[in-house]
Computed example of a mutant assay.
Amino acid sequence: MRRNEADRDRASLRRRLEVLRLPVSTLRRAGHLLPSSTDRDWERTPQSVGVGPDQQPVAVWNDHSRPQRRLVTAHDDRGRALRSVVLDGCLLPTFVQPLPGDRILLVSARRREGSNAEVWDFDGHRHHAGDLGDAVEQVLTTPAGDIWVGYFDEAKSGSGPQTHGLARFTGDLRPAWLYPAGPDSPLPSIFDCFTLNVTAETAWTCAYTDFHLVSASGTQATDHGRAPYQGAHMLLVDGRRGALIGGYAPEYDLITRYRTTPDGPVTDGPPRRLVLPDGMELRDFRATARGPELHIFIRTTWYRADLDSLGADST
């Protein structure tokens, strides 16, 4: 007999109470991102924010009154804006990433018509416009200037690179490699790229529905085995160790550390919860995972954690 909605709610509550009894690991406050201390043209919450291979943030801010005018800022490791550029006529980005040569990648998650990606420079010139596919869920660039893109489930109803679940593009927005998809592929399917982590030139994912830990570099992808936890939305990686963060419903702030063995990934220590520095729960945040580093943005506040801190008790 199917459980009704009240039964599901009670089960979710019981699990949430169990999770709340777990030890916690806290984020640390890294800084605040602001468009300008004097120019009041810009909205005070970024339209999009990302973290580059150097672990430094870039952000896009909308103009209060001019819909196609935006400010892009690049920040140091304390959140201070080091440089900025005003872009007139650029798309409305869901994602922003740096590219080599002082270039900026802007990507919209949905492709309505024409292109959904643009490459600009810090002199305000647009170099490329292109199509990275619809239903974009994750975008991360590499030190060499490649672009890794993960897609959510609605991509499957389209055509082209997006139907593969994971794709790599060149810096001028051309497809360079597609994740092997289809019934003949020995790799687990990517129906929804819940997690994406890019360190150096290698991408890592633990995707719905199979939730296998998979790495991709060059033209090769490797299946490291089924993850010890299914449903995480953030993934940290450092060699053979890592962490899966987040989960469904009552487990949304769960930390599951793992290590990779010849038999596949296994848990590495008891589960924990990830919380803000004051112990409050995470809500309404944006996250980027780069190697062993996790970056969390809540409005203009930037928080960080790493694999080592996720295994330590917070006092």
Score class of each variant (00 low, 15 high):
Leu105Ile: 13
Pro143Arg: 12
Trp61Tyr: 08
Leu187Ile: 11
Ser25Ala: 09
Trp42Glu: 02
Asp268Gly: 13
Ser189Gly: 11
Asp313Thr: 04
Leu254Met: 09
Ala227Trp: 00
Leu71Phe: 02
Arg40Ile: 15
Thr38Met: 11
Asp102Arg: 15
Glu154His: 15
Leu27Asn: 02
Leu254Phe: 11
Ser217Asn: 13
Leu91Val: 03
Ile190Gly: 06
His164Thr: 01
Asp284Ala: 14
Leu33Trp: 02
Leu187Thr: 08
Ser159Arg: 14
Asn62Cys: 15
Arg29Ala: 14
Pro262Lys: 08
Pro270Phe: 12
Pro186Cys: 13
Asp192Glu: 12
Tyr179Gln: 06
Arg259Glu: 04
Ala232Cys: 07
Leu87Val: 02
Gly171Asn: 05
Val214Trp: 03
His212Tyr: 02
Ala176Arg: 12
Arg257Leu: 04
Ala167Leu: 05
Ser84Lys: 13
Leu254Ile: 07
Ser157Lys: 15
Glu251Phe: 11
Gly145Arg: 04
Asp184Trp: 08
Ser185Met: 08
Gly225Val: 10
Arg272Tyr: 00
Phe297Gln: 02
Val49Thr: 08
Gly247Glu: 01
Pro35Cys: 08
Arg40Gly: 12
Ala109Ile: 09
Tyr229Ala: 05
Leu99Ile: 09
Ile147Glu: 00
Gly231Met: 02
Leu20Tyr: 12
Arg168Val: 04
Trp177Thr: 00
Val96Leu: 10
Trp204Phe: 06
Val86Tyr: 01
Leu178Asp: 01
Ala59Ile: 13
Arg273Gln: 08
Leu244Tyr: 04
Thr38Trp: 14
Arg299Met: 09
Ala167Gln: 02
Glu154Ala: 14
Leu244Thr: 08
Arg21Gly: 03
Gly225Asp: 07
Pro270Ala: 13
Ser48Phe: 01
Glu251Gly: 03
Ser12Asp: 07
His224Gly: 03
Ile245Pro: 00
Thr45His: 08
Ala135Trp: 04
Asn197Pro: 04
Glu201Pro: 00
Pro277Thr: 12
Leu274Gln: 07
Glu5Ser: 15
Gly79Cys: 06
Thr141Pro: 01
Gly247Leu: 01
Thr73Asp: 03
Pro161Met: 10
Asp76Ile: 12
His233Pro: 07
Met1Ser: 10
Gly231Trp: 00
Pro100Leu: 05
Ala203Cys: 07
Leu282Trp: 11
Asp313Gly: 08
Leu33Phe: 03
Arg304Thr: 11
Asp306Gln: 05
Val60Ile: 02
Pro183Met: 09
Arg240Lys: 14
Gly311Lys: 11
Glu43Ser: 12
Pro46Val: 13
Leu173Asp: 04
Arg290Gln: 10
Asp284Lys: 15
Gly50Ala: 07
Asp39Tyr: 05
Val237Lys: 13
Ser309Tyr: 13
Val72Thr: 09
Pro93Cys: 05
Asp146Asn: 09
His233Phe: 14
Phe152Thr: 14
Phe285Met: 13
Asp278Gln: 10
